[in-house]
Lab assay of single mutants.
Amino acid sequence: PPDDERKKAEKAARSGNEEKAREILERLGYSEDEARELAKRLR
């Protein structure tokens, strides 16, 4: 489910793995720019 994926992205971002967070968010349908912004904010 998307919620689980989003949680994974948050966890990745918090542990400093912004790249992985961005990949997950892009898979969820965010654009590259949106995903980058979100990954930064989740950190």
Rank of each mutant, 00 (worst) to 15 (best):
P1N: 15
P1G: 14
P1A: 14
P1M: 14
P1V: 13
P1F: 14
P1T: 14
P2G: 13
P2M: 14
P2V: 14
P2Y: 14
P2S: 12
D3Y: 10
D3R: 08
D3P: 09
D3N: 11
D3V: 09
D3M: 11
D3C: 09
D3S: 12
D3A: 09
D3E: 12
D3W: 12
D3L: 10
D4L: 14
D4R: 10
D4S: 13
D4Y: 09
D4I: 12
D4T: 14
D4A: 13
E5M: 14
E5V: 06
E5P: 09
E5K: 05
E5A: 11
E5R: 07
R6P: 03
R6N: 04
R6F: 15
R6D: 03
R6H: 11
R6G: 04
R6Y: 15
R6I: 15
K7Y: 10
K7I: 14
K7E: 11
K7S: 10
K7H: 09
K7N: 10
K7M: 13
K7T: 13
K7R: 14
K7L: 14
K7F: 11
K8Y: 07
K8D: 09
K8V: 09
K8H: 09
K8L: 14
K8T: 10
K8I: 10
K8Q: 13
K8W: 09
K8F: 07
K8N: 11
A9N: 03
A9F: 03
A9M: 03
A9L: 05
A9D: 03
A9H: 04
A9E: 03
A9R: 02
A9W: 07
E10K: 08
E10L: 12
E10W: 15
E10R: 10
E10A: 13
E10V: 13
E10H: 08
K11H: 14
K11I: 15
K11Q: 15
K11R: 15
K11V: 14
K11G: 04
K11D: 15
K11F: 13
K11Y: 14
K11T: 13
K11L: 15
K11E: 15
K11S: 11
K11A: 15
A12K: 03
A12N: 03
A12Q: 09
A12H: 11
A12R: 03
A13P: 03
A13S: 04
A13G: 04
A13Q: 03
A13L: 06
A13E: 03
R14L: 11
R14E: 06
R14F: 09
R14D: 04
R14V: 10
R14Y: 09
R14P: 02
R14W: 10
R14A: 10
R14H: 09
S15T: 09
S15K: 08
S15Y: 07
S15L: 12
S15M: 12
S15C: 12
S15N: 13
S15R: 11
S15G: 11
S15A: 14
G16N: 05
G16Q: 03
G16K: 04
G16F: 05
G16H: 05
G16W: 04
G16R: 02
G16D: 05
G16P: 02
N17A: 06
N17T: 02
N17M: 07
N17E: 09
N17W: 10
N17S: 06
N17D: 15
N17G: 04
E18I: 15
E18D: 06
E18R: 02
E18G: 04
E18Y: 12
E18F: 11
E18Q: 07
E18K: 02
E18M: 15
E19V: 09
E19Q: 11
E19Y: 07
E19I: 12
E19R: 12
E19P: 06
E19N: 08
E19G: 07
E19K: 13
K20A: 11
K20E: 12
K20G: 09
K20D: 06
K20N: 06
K20S: 08
K20L: 15
K20Y: 11
K20R: 10
K20P: 03
K20Q: 10
K20M: 13
K20F: 10
A21D: 03
A21E: 02
A21I: 07
A21L: 08
A21Y: 05
A21P: 01
A21V: 05
A21S: 04
A21H: 02
A21K: 01
A21Q: 02
A21T: 03
A21W: 06
A21R: 02
R22F: 04
R22V: 13
R22I: 13
R22Q: 07
R22D: 01
R22G: 01
R22A: 08
R22Y: 05
R22W: 05
R22N: 02
E23L: 11
E23K: 11
E23T: 06
E23N: 06
E23I: 09
E23W: 08
E23D: 07
E23M: 08
E23S: 07
E23G: 04
E23H: 08
E23F: 06
I24V: 02
I24S: 01
I24D: 01
I24R: 01
I24L: 08
I24Y: 05
I24H: 05
L25F: 13
L25G: 00
L25A: 00
L25H: 00
L25W: 05
L25P: 00
L25N: 00
L25D: 00
L25R: 00
L25Q: 00
L25I: 01
E26G: 06
E26T: 09
E26A: 08
E26N: 05
E26D: 01
E26Y: 05
E26I: 15
E26M: 15
E26V: 15
E26P: 00
E26Q: 13
E26W: 01
R27K: 14
R27V: 03
R27E: 04
R27I: 06
R27G: 13
R27S: 12
R27N: 10
L28Y: 03
L28N: 02
L28D: 01
L28W: 04
L28C: 07
L28R: 01
L28G: 02
L28I: 08
L28E: 01
L28T: 01
G29M: 01
G29Y: 00
G29Q: 00
G29H: 02
G29L: 00
G29R: 00
G29T: 00
G29D: 01
G29S: 00
Y30G: 00
Y30L: 09
Y30T: 00
Y30M: 09
Y30F: 09
Y30D: 00
Y30I: 04
S31P: 07
S31I: 01
S31K: 06
S31G: 07
S31F: 02
S31D: 06
S31E: 03
S31W: 02
S31M: 05
S31Y: 00
S31V: 00
S31T: 13
E32S: 14
E32W: 07
E32Q: 12
E32L: 07
E32D: 06
E32Y: 11
E32P: 15
E32I: 10
D33S: 14
D33I: 09
D33G: 09
D33P: 07
D33Q: 13
D33V: 09
D33K: 10
D33R: 10
E34G: 03
E34P: 00
E34D: 11
E34L: 06
E34H: 07
E34T: 06
E34A: 10
E34W: 04
A35I: 06
A35S: 04
A35E: 01
A35H: 02
A35K: 01
A35D: 01
A35N: 01
A35C: 08
A35W: 02
A35M: 03
A35G: 02
A35Y: 02
A35F: 03
R36K: 08
R36Q: 07
R36P: 00
R36D: 04
R36W: 07
R36E: 06
R36C: 03
R36L: 09
R36N: 05
R36I: 10
R36G: 03
R36T: 06
E37D: 09
E37L: 10
E37M: 08
E37R: 12
E37S: 08
E37P: 00
L38Y: 08
L38N: 01
L38G: 00
L38V: 05
L38H: 04
L38P: 00
L38T: 05
L38R: 01
A39D: 01
A39E: 04
A39S: 04
A39Q: 01
A39T: 06
A39Y: 07
A39V: 15
A39H: 01
A39F: 06
A39L: 14
K40A: 13
K40Y: 13
K40H: 15
K40R: 14
K40P: 00
K40F: 08
K40S: 12
K40T: 09
K40Q: 12
K40W: 12
R41W: 12
R41N: 11
R41T: 08
R41E: 07
R41K: 13
R41S: 10
R41G: 05
R41P: 01
L42G: 02
L42P: 01
L42N: 02
L42Y: 14
L42D: 02
L42E: 02
L42R: 01
L42K: 02
L42Q: 03
R43I: 10
R43V: 11
R43Q: 10
R43K: 11
R43H: 12
R43G: 08
R43Y: 12
R43F: 14
R43D: 04
